[in-house]
Amino acid sequence: MDIDNRELVARAKDGDRQAFDKLVKENKDKMFALTLRMTGDREAALDLTQDSFLTAYKEIGSFRGEAGFSSWLYRIASNKALNYLKRKKILSFIPLTEKTSDSVSYEMPEYVDGELLNKELALAVNSLPPKQKLVFNLRFYEQLPFGEIAAILNKSESTVKTNYQKAIEKLRKKLEGFR
């Protein structure tokens, strides 16, 4: 954590709202990208990002500064995203509305590029098991080192590496099948 960031966190811990708002502004894009890639739903991603910052505000007193502030935020957002997916999965088993036979149980993120291969790949990424998807997103798109991801998820580094490799293997097979 750089000195400026550390100072902001210290001020936010003392109840300085401006410092906290600055931390929000600095981290909003990363948190939104992660939650959007995890949920595939823009509205849900906005809610989860907002909720993650609210939790951070309430719990900032317990942040010890051993890891970076953004890692701590990633941890909060990751847990919220995983809980969201869990809830959504449970709800999908409750027949509230009739589903069409070919509907998928997850939503597609609104990727800018709409080519068929990209759609297939986006579908493959979305259909990864939640934990693999989280590890994949944190590593591939957020480009975090395995050690940091392990700390965020409270898992061993080897578990995280295995999850990532499994995700990559699934995507590689998907791409192979498409060609």
Binding site: K28, D29, F32, A33, L36, R37, L46, T49, P109, E110, Y111, V112, D113, N118, L121, A122, V125
Partner: peptide, 8 residues
Amino acid sequence: NGLTIEPL
């Protein structure tokens, strides 16, 4: 890398 998302 082509699977870009629209930023906030």
